[in-house]
Simulated assay, not measured.
Amino acid sequence: MSHTAHIPSHRKPRRSAPKVTVLRAGVAGGVLSTIAVAGAAGPANAEPVTQTIEMPTLTSGLASDFAKSADATQRVANNLDLRAQESAAITKAAKAAKTAHAEAERKAEAEKKKKAAAEARAKAAAEAERASRAAQRTTLAATASSADSGSGSGSNQTSSGSGSTGSASTTAPATSSPATGSAAAVVSFVQSHVGDAYIMGSTGPNAWDCSGLVQAAYSQIGVDLPRVSQSQSTAGTQVSLDNLQPGDILYWGGAGSAYHTAIYIGGGQFVGAQNPSKGVVQASLDYDPPSGAVRVL
C-alpha cells in the first residue's frame, strides 16, 4: 500500500462544464437576449454561475420610421412624374396652339388674296364693259352720221342727231302707254330690285347681272327667256325706239350680238343691272341710250 493511501486529498472537486445553454432573442418585440449557463452536474455544493448579455434589437419605432421614409420617397417620385407629365402637356398644347395660329394666318392671307383677286376681276370687267359700250356708241354715232351725210339733206333727222350721244330715236316719247297686265308685273319686279348689287353671272335674289335680271323679270310671269344678252336681243319682235312700251327689252350693241340688256318701264326710263360700281339702277334713256328693243309681250 502506498504511503499516501490514507491521506485525504485536499483538491477541490472539479466542476463539470455547463451542459445546458438557453438563448432567447426578442428581435421583433424588443426583448433583451439572455444567455444562461448553469451547471447541471457536479457536487451538490457547487454554486450555479449565471451570465446575461444584452443584444441590440430592431424596435417597432425604427421600423415605422423606415416605412415613413419609403412612403415619402414614393410621394416625391410621384410628384416628379406628375410634374413631368404636366410639362409635356403644356409643351404639346403650346405647339398645337402655334400650329393653329399659323394655319389661321395662312387661311386669312389666302382669303385676302382671293378677295383682292375677285375685286380686281370685277373692276376689270366693269372697265371692259364701259369701254365696250363706249366703242359701240361711237360706232353707232358714226354710222348714223354717215347715213345722214349720205342723204344730202338738212332734214329733222339730221338736226336731231347733233349735239347728243345718240339720235332722236333713242329717246322714247313722253306719252308712252302705262304698264298693264303682265308688262306691269315685269316693270314692278325690276323696280323692286333697284339698288341691288351687280355681280357678273349672278341671277338673284339680291345680286344680278344685266341679262339675269331681265330673265328673272319675265320668268315670274311664266315667260322663259334666254340667259345671255345676245340671245335676249332677238327673243321677241324688233320694235322702234320711237314706239317703246313698258316691258320691252332694251339692248345695247347689235341684235344677236348685244352686250347689255335692260327693261323699259315707261316715261323715258329703264331699269337695268348696270355694272359693279352702280348696281341695279333706274335711269333715263338719255343716260345710256340703247341700240334697239324687242317686244316679248
Rank of each mutant, 00 (worst) to 15 (best):
S2A: 08
S2R: 05
T4C: 14
P8V: 10
S9F: 04
R11L: 14
K12E: 07
P13F: 06
S16W: 08
P18M: 11
V20H: 14
L23W: 14
R24S: 15
G26Y: 07
G30S: 06
T34W: 11
A36I: 09
A41I: 05
G42M: 02
V49Q: 13
V49W: 10
S60K: 13
S64H: 07
D65V: 12
A67L: 15
S69A: 15
D71S: 14
A72S: 08
T73A: 15
T73E: 07
R75C: 03
N78W: 08
L80D: 09
D81T: 11
E86T: 04
A88M: 07
I90A: 14
I90K: 05
A102H: 10
A108Q: 02
E109L: 11
A110F: 01
E111F: 12
A116N: 14
A118E: 12
E119K: 14
A122H: 03
A122Q: 01
A122S: 10
A125Q: 09
R133E: 08
R133M: 13
L140D: 13
A142K: 08
A144R: 08
D148Q: 12
S149T: 08
G152K: 03
Q157D: 11
S160I: 01
G163A: 09
T165Q: 13
A168Q: 02
T175Q: 14
T175F: 07
S176I: 04
P178S: 13
A179C: 02
T180H: 13
A184D: 01
F189P: 00
V190E: 07
V190A: 09
S192P: 00
S192Y: 05
H193S: 00
Y198A: 03
M200Q: 11
M200F: 15
G201P: 01
G201N: 00
S202N: 13
P205K: 06
P205F: 01
N206V: 04
A207F: 06
L213D: 04
Q215R: 01
Q215C: 03
S219L: 01
V223N: 10
L225G: 02
P226M: 03
V228I: 12
Q230Y: 04
T237D: 10
D242L: 07
N243T: 13
L244S: 02
P246I: 03
I249N: 05
A255W: 01
Y259N: 06
Y259K: 05
H260L: 04
A262L: 09
I263C: 11
I263D: 08
I265R: 08
G266M: 03
G272H: 08
P276F: 01
P276L: 08
V280M: 07
Q282N: 12
Q282S: 09
Q282D: 04
Q282K: 12
Y287M: 11
D288P: 00
P290S: 04
S291D: 08
L297D: 08
